[in-house]
């Protein structure tokens, strides 16, 4: 993408990423049969986040881009986080006021 020197990723990296993703999928399946109590969702989410991170960094080449591009990529996630945080702020506090009990 960068106009001056396009980065060429060795095929090996792509296969490694692919293997990681398959392993992640398998792991998700595997942990779905174990009961970790309240940790069930966090564990599944953690695996998903690692997989997404690998895709963004390697498949989407963010790892080799300028600081500016990284900032924009990170910005997207920060904004996604605010969407979740400010929405959950509502859900987690609905029981605080007697009105809603």
């Amino acid at each position: 993408m960068s106009s001056t020197h396009p980065h060429i990723t060795p095929l090996k990296v792509y296969f490694l990423v692919f293997a990681t993703l398959i392993a992640g999928t398998w792991l998700t399946y595997f942990v779905a049969y174990k009961d970790f109590g309240w940790l069930n969702t966090p564990v599944a989410m953690a695996i998903a986040i690692v997989k997404a991170g690998v895709v963004v960094l390697y498949f989407m080449h963010v790892k080799w881009q300028s600081r500016l591009t990284m900032m924009f990529a990170a910005g997207g996630f920060i904004w996604l986080f605010t969407l979740f945080a400010f929405t959950l702020q509502d859900y987690f506090t609905r029981s605080w006021m007697p009105l809603y009990q």
Binding site: T82, Q89, D90, Y91, T93, R94, W96, M97, Y100
Partner: peptide
């Protein structure tokens, strides 16, 4: 980006979130 709840004061949104 942090004010959208002002459209939802009369929904089931929590009072705390409404204040924020």
């Amino acid at each position: 980006f942090f004010v959208w709840g002002h459209h939802m004061f009369v929904t089931g949104q929590s009072t705390y979130a409404g204040v924020v």
